[in-house]
Design a protein around this nucleic acid. Sequence first.
DNA 1: ATTAAAATTGTAATCGATTACAATACTATA
DNA 2: TATAGTATTGTAATCGATTACAATTTTAAT
Lengths: 329, 329
Amino acid sequence: MANIQQVAQKAGVSVATVSRVLNNNTTVSPETRLRVENAIKDLNYEPSMLGRNLRNSESRLLLVLIPSISNPFYSEIINGIQNTAIANNYNILLCETDSNPERENIYFNMVKNKLADGIISMDPAVNMQKLYELAENHPIILCSEYDEGGSLPYVTIDSELAAYHAVKHLIKLGHKNIALINSDEKFLYARQRRAGYEKALKEFDIPVHKEWIYNTIHVDFQDGVQAMRKLFQSNERPSAVFAVSDTLAIGALKEINVRGLKVPEDMAIVGFDKINFSNMTNPTLTTVAQPMYEMGCVAAGMLMNSIKGIRVDSIILDHELIIRESTMG
Amino acid sequence: MANIQQVAQKAGVSVATVSRVLNNNTTVSPETRLRVENAIKDLNYEPSMLGRNLRNSESRLLLVLIPSISNPFYSEIINGIQNTAIANNYNILLCETDSNPERENIYFNMVKNKLADGIISMDPAVNMQKLYELAENHPIILCSEYDEGGSLPYVTIDSELAAYHAVKHLIKLGHKNIALINSDEKFLYARQRRAGYEKALKEFDIPVHKEWIYNTIHVDFQDGVQAMRKLFQSNERPSAVFAVSDTLAIGALKEINVRGLKVPEDMAIVGFDKINFSNMTNPTLTTVAQPMYEMGCVAAGMLMNSIKGIRVDSIILDHELIIRESTMG
DNA sequence: ATTAAAATTGTAATCGATTACAATACTATA
DNA sequence: TATAGTATTGTAATCGATTACAATTTTAAT
């Protein structure tokens, strides 16, 4: 592997000139440029990022923290982040925390060790204290998740409003007995979605049934199944369910099907996230779409600005209710 | 941010000694070690990977090429790769090609630029010619996909045998009219799975119906739906379908449901891959499991060995038939 | 022809680590 | 005590780029 010295020698110039050609920023005479370019081709030279990064004190890598790679919710966000990053000569280091603090630590250290220039965190279970410590010296953006009243910049949607819209949609369809399958309310988004749920009910003078609110431990398919089982055990059976994630909704759907009931005739369902699979179920799932791709792009843009030293402000993006078969037959 | 010089000064030693403490390889006297460790703590020092990587001529990053992040098939493999990498002080650069040659080029350049130490490719549409060029100077492992008769080391399963087992399972259940939803046969795995399908039929003296073999363009849900529609148009309707991917199978399942038919009573289905969602459909999907996590671990191990200069041999792992509701009611 | 200004190129320091080799300090043995 | 052997530490080169500053060449204006 040739290095910049060898190119310089071959072209009969100094390394500075080669570097100038490489970064075509300062003036290099056309003839010299040509000589250098030929030398580069002849030697099959590729500049080493190791040298460049050390000199520039940057890795041009963005650390992206997600709880789990297999959660399809993050796919499109990651796409947006990655495309934006690449367009700006950055790349991403996708890291799965499994909500495991040790893992998290490894990743935080990567930033301290300059292996990454900044962080986009999408982990709702992230250790906020450590994140703030890190934020003193490194750019950090929260994506989808955020810290209410905190000082870390974020991109997200208005979860309360989105939940409100989802539940209102069910009410407009004539449903009064609407259950909520929520995740653990230690998560901000869970509290907000519950607030939106209750707000819609109150607006239409529908009392809130504690019995019809179920909190799951995780946000997996099986939790949805479990939740639905519980709801079937309640005294009066609800006629509709709002689940705060598609995966939960799909679990609920399965349990309803297993009992021989029809969606939406016997039980309507609304999910949340518009994951790919929500379109593949039978019936297809009504859900709330977050602008995931855009969210990823915005988050990446914010982080890169922050790295450049530009101050960034938090952004709240619009959601959209996607009405499909699970509520409209 | 403190650097190694400052630590050395604070501890009253040379940078060499600090480096020795950092890598605790050569002998450092206990007292000196303590002084250095204290200086490290006092200064909140974190070694820079930029300096280390340049000096060591390595990035300790493994490039992982996948066609699409949102394809759940890769999740577990990636998990395996990442865990193995981290355990060995490596990390992964997860790159989505979208089967786009330009994108691919960007990633290949990252290796040439020393931003990554090697490649694990899982992209069936990868440009083999370029991969071989790259392989002259950089370690490359193929995972799941491979190049028949080629010289690149790979980890995979025996696709033909797996397909054979899947179809045999259907035959043992009494099916004779078995359709095949295959992907584009430009892919090796597609040709192999077709071979397995035909082998099973021949073994039981069942003729191969051209009409019942459908090749999709992509491997998405909608392709499965389309394929099933076509199969419903054939003169004699098959009683079972073997789809070479779960996503296709789930598409087929949807189309069968839409027509008011029951799985497996009216039509049995076998998928391939055991993606997470294959367990969440109604009915749950009989499928062929590849040992994905293990495959990822093995691939990562092979790549790291290859980087170390150790010669590695290709490996074929075992598959497993997962019998669920879509064939057994 | 002279000279100031502009364009081009080179020299050498620098980023932050690792490590071969040299130098020094310590220990044990005769 | 002298000395060989071992343990510990330091010096300085090195990885491969970038860039401030200096030096040189070219251009243009008088």
